[in-house]
Structures are given as structure tokens and as C-alpha cells.
């Protein structure tokens, strides 16, 4: 078991100590954990960070899990962009204080870059890269400037 904070269950995975305060991002699609970790930018953090890859999951077969000690202030909406099937558990005093099911954010700013070479974002400095959700079922976003459609999967 990872710890009680993950909600129990019968998953047998390597042991990682519980955290008293911080966040646990669970049910990340296997293989996406590195991307999520990279977005969070915790590589220079002095706090304990654990990335568990390919853990056994009763629901999905395999999953990734991230535990970050002390961090509770995360842009949850943007996390949904990387994996909207994941859940975020906010831990305080060793207990789950909040459990958040992620969904695709309506708007994302400065996370995706537009790949259309004719888009103004390719030349104009210091403007935010903004994408808006246009089709959740197809996981499609549209560039605010040039309308280029980006598919997440």
C-alpha cells in the first residue's frame, strides 16, 4: 500500500511513506506522470517529491502517482489538461481534506503552444498563448488567435 491517503484498496505497489501535508495526484494515466511532474515545476523543490510509475490499478490496469510534500497550491484546472481522469487529494494533518476529480479546463493559458506557423504567436513576443476547449469528447482545443485546432490525444 502506498498509504491511507490514497483511499485504501488492494493495490500492491512499492511502499512510499505517507505525507502529513501536501498533495497526492492519483490515477494518472500510466506514462503521463513525467509530463504532469514537469508541468508542476517541482524539480527544484526542497520538499519530498515521489513519482510512482506503472503502479497496479484496479480501475485502469496501470497508473502513475505523484506525491508532493507541503505543496497544496496547484493550478488544478491546468492539471486536467494533462490527464482529466486523475484525482487530486489535498492532504492536511495526515488526512484527505479535499478530493478533486479533474476535468478538461475550459481555458488554458501558457501551457500549450500553437503549432501553426502562420499564427501571430509565432512572431509576437510577450503575449499569452491561450486555448479554449471546443469539444470535450474529442479533447479538442482551439487557439484563441488563429483558431488552429489541437487534439490532446
Amino acid at each position: 500500500m502506498i498509504d491511507a491517503a490514497l483511499g485504501g484498496g488492494t493495490e500492491k505497489i512499492m511502499e512510499v511513506n505517507s505525507i502529513n501535508r501536501g498533495i497526492v495526484i492519483d490515477h494518472i494515466r500510466a506514462g503521463c506522470g513525467m509530463k504532469v511532474l514537469s508541468y508542476l515545476g517541482v524539480d527544484t523543490s526542497k520538499d519530498t517529491v515521489a513519482l510512482i510509475m506503472n503502479a497496479t490499478s484496479a480501475k485502469h490496469g496501470r497508473k502513475d502517482i505523484i506525491k508532493i510534500e507541503n505543496l497544496t497550491d496547484v493550478d488544478i484546472a491546468a492539471l486536467g489538461l494533462f490527464d482529466h481522469s486523475a484525482t487530486v487529494n489535498v492532504i492536511e494533518d495526515g488526512k484527505i481534506r479535499q478530493k478533486i476529480h479533474l476535468s478538461l479546463p475550459e481555458t488554458v493559458k501558457d501551457v500549450i503552444k500553437c503549432k501553426n506557423p502562420r499564427c501571430v504567436t509565432s512572431v509576437e513576443p510577450a503575449i499569452p498563448h491561450i486555448f479554449r476547449l471546443v469539444d470535450a469528447a474529442r479533447e479538442e482545443y482551439r487557439c484563441e488567435y488563429c483558431d488552429e485546432i489541437v487534439k490532446l490525444s
Binding site: 501571430v120 503575449i127 488567435y145 488563429c146
Partner: peptide
């Protein structure tokens, strides 16, 4: 009028 797509949106902002 500008050759880049979305340029007018940037200008308006």
C-alpha cells in the same frame, strides 16, 4: 491588415 493569423486580436488587446 497583417499576414499573421490572429494579429488583429493582438492589436485589439
Amino acid at each position: 491588415r497583417h499576414p499573421k493569423e490572429g494579429s488583429a486580436r493582438v492589436a485589439a488587446a
